[in-house]
Nucleic acid binder design. Structure first.
Length: 874
DNA sequence: AGCTTCACG
DNA sequence: ACGTACGTGAAGCTG
């Protein structure tokens, strides 16, 4: 059944005005009523998805009710100016939304709703009346429902026939009789004095309509009520007449005129922007997954000849693509010279894919894409060598603002081209995606085509922005070349010793079973050790151990807490041990067993656009957090082996890169001196902080100094240092004071970072990578201090990230004709699979490229080790 | 989906 | 009087 939605515009607007605080835009225009109206409108349209819609308004002219009864609505105050000035705005929006407004002089909005809904009932439509006025409840029927909006604007009460009967015990048409007896204060309808809702309902239930009640007035038992009615027959009849909504206005309505149409999005957006309706703006733009009349269907290319014809004479091609079930499903190409085309690869033979890979490898044509590494991987695995990959819009957007949660083409279209394109969410994220085979090809064609066009058209604008921010070199010479480096690394993969893996699995499983038993014995019952909740119950309730720390949801049981509790009960140490092994097994052993079922090699994905500082991250699996800090964890590195026995694993890591970067950035003479002297930096720091000669530094002092150095890099606080070293805060504060006394320019530099962030709103790295720090102006002290630590840490961490990226690009270029391969990056460390014959040469290339990636005020040192697995490369 | 915990630099 | 070290990703539990 088709649905008609009728909105009592006057009533909803009024409600909204009084329900919401007096919002205005920055120009001082009052917007609350319009805002509330729109919230309501979008909600009901979303919830009920009507086929027809119209909004009715009262017109100023007096209605028959005024003529009949002078006092009608006489007590109502004049509409405030703050509200009346919003009416033209609302009309404007409704017109942009292509929603019909109905108004008829001499009738109220109610009457229009009544008349139109009656005609709708005759035509077999399901009608929804949206209003804030309970009077309209009289219109409820089997076909017509009333949606009453309440205070909150978006919470509503829906009345259908049955709900109404349940609530009032009378029929909707008897609701008018109820009004006739009770009257209505707000409309100044008198009703029968002395009769309220309760009495009125009883009378109607017993006798029916007002007429019947009057006829039977003598039979009313209660004297007070009987006399009230008998003395006010006229008033009752008048009140009923005034309350009766007209359902047969002498006007024909053509329902077809109310068909829901595509809104004029541009206009709606312009108005919402003017009114500063930010959340509503998103709604308008988000909801356009529906095919748009204006959208173009692009030319389809389905054979290699046409493909080659398309790419001939083209200088630069923008490529969009979609992957499905781990295969390349489709792509669109867009170029200035030849326009935009769609390649439905999923239904074409493989020659089309190869033609595409060949294009990717064509040195004479520049390629642009969005997260293009994903596409390169397909070509590389088929043996192609992509070349001239010159622009990635995701990376450009990331450099422009590194703290966005995601970088999608749709957003770039909006930000740089002010264009709305189709939503690609049908492809979903990760595993929850719909099968595109269920989607019309025309839709896919439009979607991919728009994306390719946007990549191509936004490129010059994004490049301009990068130039303006002085990040053109970072983009062109570091990040873009790095795309190919990472793609190669991902495709090469890390070889895994499955037997060793399975051996570790049974070893860990065995240990886990035995520890589990011991824990159950000590606890006196079995429980899920992995559940912090159940564990809390055992530790803090059953065993009565003291609560050290609380979390949002309960008691904390983290390692820090457990270490403190360990002396009090034997179970605690066992739990720590269980935790450690269980973590190692589930994350690494079980995870890698799954990943090596098909092939011995594991291929991580590097993400170049997630971290706020410029580091890269690694997922599925994360190979940047393979255990090393504990002996037992470190065993896991034994499963990471060279590609064959002619190769070794080589690890090259920067020694103290962050502190060296700090020495450079701060120009601190003492710190620079330490590095030039080539001393152990933590020992030297200890000697400075504790004021003892280098040879009098104890291991304990060195340990403390190391923590101080970490603290400096993280944006130090005495609290953090105190917690890390488990010393009183005052002592930690003293360490920090004495550190800064010895390294005064470090102090100056860190202050400078904070000052810069406050003044400019951002901080930068040596390669001009930028991070905005909005936290630094927060009124909340914690957030603000967090901002200060970000301002201190980001230039250090980010510059180190810049440096290793440069080294990666340079090394990759140098070793491209070797058999040895770069396979992993772990922030300050590069891992290679090195052919033994090439070992000496590779060692020197890697060392030189890492140490000379940039020229700092201190030397950069790379430490190189190798072995028959990652564990032995130490 | 959010929280807790813990693996890494 | 408050409550903090910086940057990540994955697993398991819970609502």
């Amino acid at each position: 059944m088709k649905k008609l939605m009728l909105i009592d515009g006057s009533s909803v607007l009024y409600r909204a005005f009084f329900a919401l605080p007096p919002l205005m835009n920055s120009k001082g225009t009052r917007t609350n009523a319009v805002y509330g109206f729109m919230m309501m409108l979008f909600k009901v349209m979303d919830d009920y998805k009507p086929d027809y819609i119209a909004v009715a308004f009262d017109v100023k002219a007096p209605t028959f009710r005024h003529k009949e009864y002078d006092a009608y609505k006489a007590t109502r105050e004049k509409m405030p100016d703050e509200l009346s000035c919003q009416i033209p705005i609302l009309r404007d929006i409704l017109s942009a939304l292509n929603i019909k407004i109905i108004e008829v002089p001499g009738f109220e909005a109610d009457d229009i709703l009544g008349t139109v809904s009656k005609q709708a009932e005759k035509n077999g439509l399901e009608t929804y009346i949206v209003t804030g006025d309970r009077d309209s409840l009289q219109l409820v029927s089997k076909e017509t429902r009333v949606i009453l909006n309440k205070k909150g604007m978006t919470d509503v009460e829906v009345y259908d026939y049955d709900i109404f009967r349940d609530r009032y015990g009378i029929t909707p048409s008897e609701f008018i009789d109820l009004k006739g007896l009770m009257g209505d204060k707000s409309d100044n309808i008198p009703g029968v004095p002395g009769i309220g809702e309760k009495t009125a309902l009883e009378l109607i239930k017993e006798y029916g309509s007002v007429n019947e009640i009057i006829k039977n007035v003598d039979r009313i038992k209660n004297k007070r009520v009987r006399e009230a009615i008998a003395n006010n027959v006229d008033k009752a009849l008048l009140s009923k007449r005034l309350s009766t909504i007209i359902r047969d206005m002498p006007i024909e309505f053509d329902i077809e005129e109310y068909t829901v149409k595509e809104p004029d999005k541009k206009r709606v957006r312009a108005i919402f922007e003017e009114l500063e309706f930010k959340s509503l703006l998103d709604k308008v733009s988000k909801d356009d997954t529906a095919p748009n009349v204006d959208r173009v269907v692009y030319r389809v290319i389905d054979n290699v000849d046409d493909f080659n014809e398309y790419i001939s004479g083209v200088e630069r091609i923008a490529i969009s693509f979609k992957v499905h079930e781990d295969g390349l499903a489709m792509t669109s190409l867009s170029s200035q010279e030849k326009g935009t085309v769609f390649l439905p690869l999923y239904r074409l033979d493989d020659s089309m894919k190869y033609a595409l890979y060949k294009l990717l490898s064509n040195e004479n044509i520049k390629k642009s894409g969005h997260n293009i590494k994903r596409l390169l991987n397909f070509a590389i695995s088929e043996g192609y060598k992509p070349a001239n990959i010159s622009f990635d819009s995701a990376i450009a957007a990331y450099l422009i603002n590194a703290t966005e949660s995601e970088y999608i083409i749709r957003q770039i279209a909006k930000d740089f081209l002010n264009r709305d394109i189709l939503d690609d969410s049908i492809f979903g994220k990760g595993r929850n995606r719909t099968d595109f085979h269920n989607v019309e090809e025309e839709m896919l064609n439009q979607l991919l085509g728009e994306e390719a066009e946007v990549i191509g058209q936004s490129e010059p604008l994004m490049r301009e922005k990068l130039d303006e921010l002085s990040m053109d070199r970072l983009f062109n010479d570091i990040e873009m070349p790095l795309v190919m480096v990472l793609a190669d690394m991902e495709c090469t993969g890390f070889n895994i010793d499955r037997n060793e893996l399975l051996r570790l699995d049974s070893e860990f499983t065995e240990q886990l079973t035995s520890i589990t038993k011991e824990i159950y014995n000590l606890a006196g019952e079995e429980f899920n050790i992995n559940s912090p909740k159940q564990l809390s119950h055992i530790l803090f309730e059953k065993l009565g151990l003291p609560v050290i720390k609380k979390t949002k949801t309960g008691y904390s049981t983290d390692a820090e807490v457990l270490e403190e509790l360990a002396p009090q009960h034997d179970i605690v140490a066992k739990i720590l041990e269980y935790r450690q092994i269980s973590k190692l097994k589930s994350t690494y052993i079980d995870g890698f067993i799954k990943l090596t079922e098909k092939s011995a090699k594991i291929h991580t994905s590097f993400n170049q656009t997630v971290t706020a500082t410029g580091r890269i991250s690694s997922t599925e699996p994360n190979l940047q957090n393979i255990p090393i800090r504990t002996d037992i964890g470190r065993q896991i590195r034994k499963v990471f082996i060279p590609s064959d026995d002619k190769h070794v694993i080589l690890s090259a890591d920067y020694s103290q890169i962050e502190l060296r970067v700090l020495a450079h950035l701060s120009s601190d003479e003492n710190l620079i001196g330490s590095f030039i002297a080539g001393e152990d930096i933590h020992t030297r720091t200890a000697s400075e902080v504790f004021n003892v000669p280098i040879d009098k530094v104890t291991p304990e002092m060195r340990r403390s100094a190391k923590a101080v150095n970490f603290g400096i890099v993280y944006g130090i606080s005495d609290f953090g240092l105190a917690r890390d070293l488990r010393i009183p805060r005052e002592v930690a504060a003293e360490y920090i004071r004495s550190y800064f006394k010895r390294y005064p320019q470090v102090k100056e530099y860190l202050d400078e970072c904070v000052k810069k962030a406050k003044e400019l709103g951002y901080v930068t790295t040596i390669m001009n990578r930028r991070r905005y720090v909005p936290e630094i102006t927060s009124k909340n002290r914690n957030i603000r201090m967090f901002g200060e630590r970000i301002a201190m840490n980001t230039p250090i961490q980010g510059s180190a990230a810049d440096i290793i990226k440069i080294a990666m690009v340079n090394v990759h270029k140098k070793i491209k004709d070797f058999k040895s391969k770069l396979i992993l990056q772990v922030h300050d460390e590069l891992i290679f699979d090195v052919l033994k014959e090439e070992l000496d040469e590779i060692k020197e290339i890697v060392r030189w490229e890492m140490e000379n990636a940039v020229n700092l005020k201190v030397p950069l040192i790379a430490e190189i080790k190798y072995g028959n697995n990652w564990y032995d490369a130490k």
